[in-house]
Protein backbone atom coordinates (compact mmCIF):
# COMPACT_ATOMS: atom_id res chain seq x y z
CA UNK A 1 0.00 0.00 0.00
CA UNK A 2 2.68 2.50 1.02
CA UNK A 3 4.71 1.89 -2.14
CA UNK A 4 1.60 2.41 -4.23
CA UNK A 5 0.89 5.81 -2.71
CA UNK A 6 4.38 7.12 -3.12
CA UNK A 7 3.76 8.51 -6.59
CA UNK A 8 3.61 12.26 -7.11
CA UNK A 9 0.09 12.13 -8.50
CA UNK A 10 -3.25 13.06 -7.00
CA UNK A 11 -4.67 10.66 -4.42
CA UNK A 12 -5.94 7.34 -5.65
CA UNK A 13 -9.66 6.39 -5.53
CA UNK A 14 -11.22 2.98 -5.93
CA UNK A 15 -14.20 2.90 -8.26
CA UNK A 16 -17.29 0.75 -7.78
CA UNK A 17 -19.84 0.44 -10.57
CA UNK A 18 -23.46 -0.64 -10.24
CA UNK A 19 -24.78 -1.82 -13.58
CA UNK A 20 -28.40 -2.57 -12.72
CA UNK A 21 -30.99 -1.51 -10.20
CA UNK A 22 -30.66 -3.45 -6.97
CA UNK A 23 -27.40 -5.06 -8.07
CA UNK A 24 -24.14 -4.78 -6.17
CA UNK A 25 -21.55 -2.08 -6.72
CA UNK A 26 -18.65 -4.00 -8.18
CA UNK A 27 -15.04 -2.90 -8.05
CA UNK A 28 -14.03 -1.69 -11.51
CA UNK A 29 -10.60 -0.16 -10.98
CA UNK A 30 -9.09 3.07 -9.75
CA UNK A 31 -8.54 6.69 -10.78
CA UNK A 32 -6.44 9.59 -9.58
CA UNK A 33 -8.26 12.78 -8.59
CA UNK A 34 -7.75 15.78 -6.31
CA UNK A 35 -11.15 15.55 -4.57
CA UNK A 36 -14.37 13.48 -4.44
CA UNK A 37 -16.29 15.35 -7.16
CA UNK A 38 -13.40 15.09 -9.61
CA UNK A 39 -12.94 11.45 -8.65
CA UNK A 40 -16.58 10.79 -9.59
CA UNK A 41 -16.16 12.60 -12.90
CA UNK A 42 -12.98 10.71 -13.71
CA UNK A 43 -14.60 7.44 -12.72
CA UNK A 44 -17.54 8.25 -14.98
CA UNK A 45 -15.24 8.99 -17.90
CA UNK A 46 -12.94 6.04 -17.41
CA UNK A 47 -15.34 3.30 -16.29
CA UNK A 48 -18.76 4.30 -17.53
CA UNK A 49 -18.28 6.02 -20.85
CA UNK A 50 -20.03 3.23 -22.75
CA UNK A 51 -23.11 3.07 -20.61
CA UNK A 52 -21.97 0.46 -18.13
CA UNK A 53 -23.30 2.12 -14.98
CA UNK A 54 -26.39 3.45 -13.31
CA UNK A 55 -24.54 4.33 -10.11
CA UNK A 56 -20.94 4.96 -9.12
CA UNK A 57 -19.08 4.98 -5.83
CA UNK A 58 -15.60 6.32 -5.32
CA UNK A 59 -13.68 5.59 -2.13
CA UNK A 60 -10.24 6.93 -1.18
CA UNK A 61 -7.90 3.98 -1.59
CA UNK A 62 -6.25 4.79 1.73
CA UNK A 63 -9.60 4.14 3.49
CA UNK A 64 -9.56 0.52 2.43
CA UNK A 65 -8.07 -1.95 4.84
CA UNK A 66 -7.07 -5.10 3.05
CA UNK A 67 -5.65 -8.50 3.89
CA UNK A 68 -2.02 -9.19 3.07
CA UNK A 69 -0.96 -12.04 0.81
CA UNK A 70 0.70 -13.57 3.89
CA UNK A 71 -2.73 -13.70 5.57
CA UNK A 72 -3.98 -16.12 2.97
CA UNK A 73 -3.33 -19.29 4.95
CA UNK A 74 -4.70 -18.30 8.38
CA UNK A 75 -7.57 -16.26 6.92
CA UNK A 76 -8.95 -18.45 4.21
CA UNK A 77 -7.73 -22.02 4.37
CA UNK A 78 -9.62 -23.18 7.50
CA UNK A 79 -12.88 -22.69 5.65
CA UNK A 80 -12.15 -25.14 2.88
CA UNK A 81 -11.01 -28.36 4.59
CA UNK A 82 -14.00 -29.06 6.79
CA UNK A 83 -16.80 -30.29 4.62
CA UNK A 84 -19.30 -30.17 7.49
CA UNK A 85 -19.08 -26.35 7.32
CA UNK A 86 -21.06 -26.46 4.10
CA UNK A 87 -24.81 -27.03 4.00
CA UNK A 88 -24.39 -29.61 1.22
CA UNK A 89 -22.78 -31.88 3.84
CA UNK A 90 -26.09 -32.45 5.53
CA UNK A 91 -28.73 -34.69 3.98
CA UNK A 92 -32.22 -33.40 3.85
CA UNK A 93 -34.41 -35.76 5.95
CA UNK A 94 -36.86 -37.89 4.02
CA UNK A 95 -40.35 -36.51 3.84
CA UNK A 96 -39.20 -32.91 4.00
CA UNK A 97 -40.11 -30.79 1.05
Amino acid sequence: MSEKNKDSQWPLWEVFVQSEQGGPHIHAGSVHAPDPEMALQNARDVYSRRNEAISLWVVPSVSITATMPSDQGPFFDPASDKIYRHPQFYHVPKGLK
Binding site: Q9, V31, H32, A33, N42, D45, V46, R49
Partner: peptide, 11 residues
Protein backbone atom coordinates in the same frame (compact mmCIF):
# COMPACT_ATOMS: atom_id res chain seq x y z
CA UNK B 1 -2.23 16.80 -18.16
CA UNK B 2 -3.36 13.45 -16.70
CA UNK B 3 -4.69 10.31 -18.33
CA UNK B 4 -8.14 10.63 -16.70
CA UNK B 5 -8.52 14.07 -18.24
CA UNK B 6 -7.23 12.81 -21.57
CA UNK B 7 -10.11 10.35 -21.60
CA UNK B 8 -12.60 12.96 -20.37
CA UNK B 9 -11.70 15.43 -23.14
CA UNK B 10 -11.80 12.62 -25.68
CA UNK B 11 -15.27 11.61 -24.49
Amino acid sequence: PVIEEDIALGN
